[in-house]
């Protein structure tokens, strides 16, 4: 046998081999029976060296500690039975009875715990649902209030952009007449309502004008024809965009209207 392998075997027996050397020896042992035998014998030789060491009695309590440790370990406890086989059956039966009683009590306890837990969970769910319903109701009220507020604001806003003007006259014959303009400054359009207006002469029409200070002349808002009772209600929109409708005027013009006022103004306002 090669000295190299004897060396590895000796070092291995003393537990000194590490890494590559250990792997080398393990590999060779697989196919070299003589080397394997040598390893075994050298291991035994090393172990025998312990026989040369002076014995020393361990503390008396240590034995008890070891036995207790073996008993306390689950696997060991089952195994550490001794020779008292005669008692094994009774011990097993007693253990089974105790275990059964214990399991029954545990089952009862678990069932009670489960019922309590279920009731507690049900109560909690009920409370949660109630709280959620209350919260939902509160939110719905809040939403309704907000919607109302929004509607009110929209209405207020709508009114804010609306302007109502009553046209007045100093001309005799028109003092009975009533003229009201509702002007939507955002849409730049309006409604004119006339009542008790005297009829115009043949070949003439009433024509509405919007006075905008930014424009040099009043802006044409269209002709207005009244019925036999002097009533008219017309939607109008000036021919050019009006940014500031400061006044409204009604004049008598040629039939079909004119682009630029020529006739007398019979009503003006506000």
């Amino acid at each position: 046998m090669e000295e190299r392998f004897e060396e590895l075997a000796a070092l291995s027996a003393l537990g000194m081999l590490e890494g590559d050397e250990k792997r080398t020896l393990d590999g060779v042992i697989l196919r070299d029976r003589a080397l394997k035998t040598l390893c075994t014998e050298l291991e035994a030789t090393v172990a025998e060296l312990a026989g040369a060491v002076a014995p020393f009695a361990p503390p008396a309590a240590l034995k008890g500690r070891i036995r207790a440790k073996i008993r306390s370990r689950r696997t060991g406890a089952a195994k550490y039975s001794g020779n008292y086989w005669a008692f094994t059956g009774w011990a097993a039966a007693a253990a089974l009875a105790v275990s059964s009683a214990w399991l029954w009590m545990e089952r009862e306890k678990l069932q009670t715990n489960l019922q309590s837990a279920t009731a507690a969970v049900a109560t909690e769910i009920e409370q949660t649902q109630k709280a959620a319903a209350e919260q939902r109701e509160g939110l719905e009220k809040q939403i309704a209030a907000l919607n109302g507020e929004i509607a009110s604001l929209q209405k207020r806003d709508a009114l804010a952009q609306m302007r109502i003007a009553t046209l007045q006259t100093t001309v005799e014959g028109y003092k009975q007449g009533v003229a009201v303009v509702v002007w939507d400054s955002e849409k730049h359009q309006g409604v004119l309502k006339l009542e008790k207006m005297p009829p115009v002469q043949v070949g003439k029409d009433y024509q509405l004008w919007v006075v905008d200070p930014k424009q040099p002349v009043p802006v044409d808002a269209g002709i207005v024809r009244v019925d036999s009772t002097g009533f008219a209600k017309v939607d109008f929109k000036p021919v050019t965009e009006v940014t500031d409708a400061s006044k409204f005027a009604l004049s008598v013009e040629k039939e079909g209207g004119v682009p630029k006022g020529e006739g007398p103004i019979v009503l003006i306002g506000p």
Partner: peptide, 24 residues
């Protein structure tokens, strides 16, 4: 085989030599 009496006996016989070794 799980013989605790044998374990006790074996402990009594081996432990002084093994304890002596471990101390050293």
């Amino acid at each position: 085989r799980g013989d605790s009496r044998a374990f006790d006996e074996l402990y009594d016989r081996l432990s002084p030599r093994l304890y002596g070794l471990l101390r050293q």
